[in-house]
Computed example of a mutant assay.
Amino acid sequence: MGASQRKIRQAPRKEIVPLTLDAFSSMESLEKIAKYGEIIEASASGILINFKREDFIKKELRSNLNLDALVGHKVFFTIHEMDLEISGTVARTKFLGKKGFQVAVDYSTDAPEYWRECLIDLLPNS
């Protein structure tokens, strides 16, 4: 992918105290994709989530080394500590070996900019 094809980061990242997800689900089918996850970074445009292989519900996702099938899917999840539901689109995924996977969710089109900036201010720093 060339530099002209890459999406330029819209907002600086903030490393946060890991927050847990109650569930990670598809917006289209309302099917639960993962039962647990951990938010490790956030910005006013996206959230980075770590998943362990055993967190995924479907066997196909647990047994695969690649989660690219999720890219472009509309998803929603609840941040447990804040009792806050967020929706967005899976922007990219990354296999981390034995540590599991990272999934980046872009939520910039689903929430106003001022709300997203307030959310980032409220998330605890690491």
Rank of each mutant, 00 (worst) to 15 (best):
M1W: 06
A3W: 09
A3L: 13
S4E: 15
R6S: 12
K7I: 14
I8W: 05
A11Q: 15
R13Y: 08
R13P: 05
E15P: 12
I16Q: 07
I16M: 09
V17G: 02
V17W: 06
P18L: 01
P18R: 04
P18D: 04
T20R: 10
L21G: 03
D22C: 01
F24A: 08
S25L: 04
S25M: 06
S25R: 07
L30S: 13
L30A: 12
E31G: 06
E31F: 00
K32M: 13
K32S: 09
A34Y: 00
A34G: 07
E38H: 03
I39A: 08
I40V: 13
A42V: 15
A42E: 05
A42P: 08
S43H: 05
S43Y: 07
S43P: 06
G46A: 12
G46E: 14
G46F: 08
I47G: 09
I47V: 15
I49R: 04
I49Q: 05
N50I: 03
F51W: 00
F51I: 00
K52N: 01
R53G: 06
E54G: 03
D55I: 03
D55Y: 07
D55F: 06
F56S: 01
I57N: 00
K58L: 06
K59Q: 12
E60I: 07
L61P: 02
L61Y: 05
L61Q: 03
L61A: 01
S63Y: 05
N64T: 12
N64R: 04
N64L: 00
L65N: 07
L67I: 02
L67S: 01
L70C: 00
L70W: 02
G72W: 05
H73F: 07
K74T: 02
K74W: 04
V75H: 05
V75D: 03
F76G: 00
F77A: 01
T78R: 15
I79A: 10
I79M: 08
H80M: 08
M82L: 15
M82P: 04
D83T: 12
D83I: 09
L84T: 09
L84C: 09
I86T: 02
A91K: 15
R92N: 15
R92K: 13
T93A: 01
T93G: 00
T93Y: 03
K94F: 07
F95Y: 14
F95D: 05
L96D: 08
G97A: 02
K98F: 07
K98G: 01
G100I: 04
G100L: 04
G100C: 03
F101T: 04
Q102T: 13
V103Q: 06
V103M: 13
V103C: 11
A104R: 13
A104N: 13
D106Y: 11
D106V: 14
Y107I: 13
Y107N: 08
Y107D: 08
Y107L: 09
S108A: 15
S108T: 08
T109H: 13
D110F: 13
D110V: 10
D110A: 14
A111W: 11
E113Y: 10
E113S: 14
Y114R: 10
Y114F: 12
R116I: 01
R116T: 03
R116P: 02
C118E: 15
C118V: 11
D121F: 09
L122I: 14
N125Q: 13
N125L: 11
N125E: 14
S126Y: 10
S126H: 11
S126V: 12
S126G: 15
